[in-house]
């Protein structure tokens, strides 16, 4: 359950934002999942739910949303762009290694054109908190939505 560690990171981020922005309740967290890291969405969601149940007041109304982001690479040597589907076959061990540390893709993948391992992960690397939406309590007790 490596996803558990990432779930904790998401929840701590939401708590930090809530504190900084004075949010009394979090209504939604949108998480972007990059294709390269192959994070198990359902395990991550389960772990987030398990962690936030101890913080009922802040996360009571929280909806967890996910967006998948396709991985795109660009070769620094020849300039060729390619996506994960064209990245060539990875065996289970290689996939697992990339799941834990996406940068080791530079060991197991290379540019389909010039075979250089010097490429850029343009997008779709791993986990990213895209937005946190919450309610801000006004001085008169009113509530305002806040991103």
């Amino acid at each position: 359950m490596h996803e558990w560690a990432l779930a904790e990171a998401v929840v701590l981020t939401a708590e930090k934002v809530a504190k900084e922005q004075g949010l009394g309740a979090i209504q939604g967290i949108t998480i972007k999942l990059g294709q390269l890291q192959q994070i198990e969405k359902n395990i991550l969601k389960f772990a987030i739910r398990e962690i936030i149940q101890h913080q009922r007041s802040l996360f009571k109304k929280a909806k967890i949303r996910f967006q998948n982001e396709k991985a795109v690479f660009k070769c620094r040597n020849c300039g060729r762009k390619w996506n994960f589907a064209n990245a060539g076959k990875l065996n289970f061990k290689e996939s697992e290694a990339i799941h834990f540390v996406p940068e080791v893709a530079h060991v197991f993948m290379s540019c389909p054109q010039c075979k250089s391992p010097d490429f850029e992960i343009i997008k779709g690397r791993g986990i990213w908190v895209d937005s946190i939406v919450g309610e801000k309590e006004g001085p008169d007790g009113s509530e305002n939505k806040c991103h």
């Binding site: 290694a97 940068e103 530079h106 060991v107």
Partner: peptide
């Protein structure tokens, strides 16, 4: 543990 002890061609950002 994740590189199989192979060379990791990594720039600073990575």
């Amino acid at each position: 543990y994740y590189t199989e002890d192979k060379t990791l061609a990594l720039r600073r950002a990575g």
